[in-house]
Design a protein around this nucleic acid. Sequence first.
DNA 1: GCCTGCATCCCCAGTAATTGGTATATCGCA
DNA 2: TGCGATATACCAATTACTGGGGATGCAGGC
Lengths: 290, 290
Amino acid sequence: MTGLIAQWPARWIETGLQGVNEAIGGQQIGKRWTTSNGQCMRLSVAEEFARELVEIETSERLEEALKRTSRFLGFDHFALSLEARTSMEKPPEVLIHDYPEAWANVYINFDLGGMDPVRRACDKSFSGFTWENIEYMIPMTRGDRQMLAVGRECGIGDGYTVPRHLPGTASGTCSFVVRPEVSLPRQWLVVAELVGTMALTCALKISGMAATASTPKLSDRQRECLLWTARGKTASETALILGISTETVIQHLKMARERYEVHCKQSLIVSALFDGLIGYRDVFRWQKYH
Amino acid sequence: MTGLIAQWPARWIETGLQGVNEAIGGQQIGKRWTTSNGQCMRLSVAEEFARELVEIETSERLEEALKRTSRFLGFDHFALSLEARTSMEKPPEVLIHDYPEAWANVYINFDLGGMDPVRRACDKSFSGFTWENIEYMIPMTRGDRQMLAVGRECGIGDGYTVPRHLPGTASGTCSFVVRPEVSLPRQWLVVAELVGTMALTCALKISGMAATASTPKLSDRQRECLLWTARGKTASETALILGISTETVIQHLKMARERYEVHCKQSLIVSALFDGLIGYRDVFRWQKYH
DNA sequence: GCCTGCATCCCCAGTAATTGGTATATCGCA
DNA sequence: TGCGATATACCAATTACTGGGGATGCAGGC
């Protein structure tokens, strides 16, 4: 339980915010994102992208829209990857990009080794980050730096990556990249954050991993018993907490299993979590207060 | 094992995107967010907030800045919560809000029942969502609706919640709320998405949580036994499947519980799912084939 | 060579869960 | 008013799990 409790230098945290700050940028309003009459149009780009996405059903169309939008934002490449949260070997649900072929090939080898520092940094940030800040987020190994160097030779310079996670369901990243010797379009990073988020939402929809509401399968009392079970309580403990008899708790859980058509509490918990009938926050928050 | 992997109605997925679309909004540019000379200033609000955040080191100052910004965006209340998934009992790392006291008190009681549909919906979306869309994301029980009704009586109307999750590390939400009978400021939701993201990043910095990340690691065999357990198998069934003795399976699960510092298989499964050690895909894909 | 981690196997005592029943009372709704 | 759903409570038999002990062999690192 100990292990790698590294002390992140406070700097990355600041740079995380500064990254957003830079992303927001815009002291000087560039010509490119203002119309002739001086109207700001940065959000309009995200707006237009959002309108497109509502209609998109296939990864091909998402790729096309993302490519066009990333170009407009001033990036040379983009890459979106969405994978089911699993350790088993399976191809990602959605993987679209327009990286140079040389880099795409190299990348697969690096990725198989799990050596991508960008991926690791994704587990550390709520928001998008520029690649130049990765070294303040995670320890960079020699292999990591070598990978980035190889990337530059393949036409991959700096980038901005938007990470998103859904517990138990999926992890996704959406990166916007410029070629070497070119600066990131700072004033557009904030729009990239929005565009990346929307693209990942769309990818989730395409992959079929998006959630939906079903009619609640359980009564409130059944759900309550289930929640305490998920929190690690036994039937008798739950009975004490709810002020009812142990047998009643058992009965509620019995009914709940019948409704979900499962025969054990493990499956019941997994099903209810997946359905959204109980949430991780419901389970873990309570544990804080023991 | 039917019913679990239902065919998601496309509706919520669309509404998810439409939510973003509405958030982007802005067909009609309201007077409120344009300056006298017609300059758009929506992003400027986020920009200003970002500049403040870089300097903020305490939750008190974050609270103050978030309160001011949420008012400016047209919301009546805000709430930010950031929780670590540690095994140690500790209060939430950061919990700041300016909800009416009546609601804060009521909420704690409901919270003990784990009946907040907003928190559950947070496990289902990459981006922020309006509360009116929750019913398309997760099943709503009677208790859920009752909770929202009580909320309205306490001055809590509709809201927009930004969820963020770092696997094995932390979960956070930032909500922006209007009082009943008042509409959400649609054109500002996109800014709320950015402000919420930045506020959560800042909260992460304040809590020092970036420093405490390591998730327990299980051996391959331990994970395999855990996976079959999550699939609803008993120890003896798992033993048959893996071709080892029941006692060995029990031993592996024993070790896994020790590493996660939990004492029952329910908690083990929930923790492993949350950390991404196993995924719903791992569990359900198998069940399709019985 | 020693140590650690891993995987495998075994025993035991106590507790919990599962499956099969039965039985009340209440509440909302048609 | 009667039906169905809900919440409550109980019993009995069987199986599964949990937390203590052990043990062996095998790989990899220092």
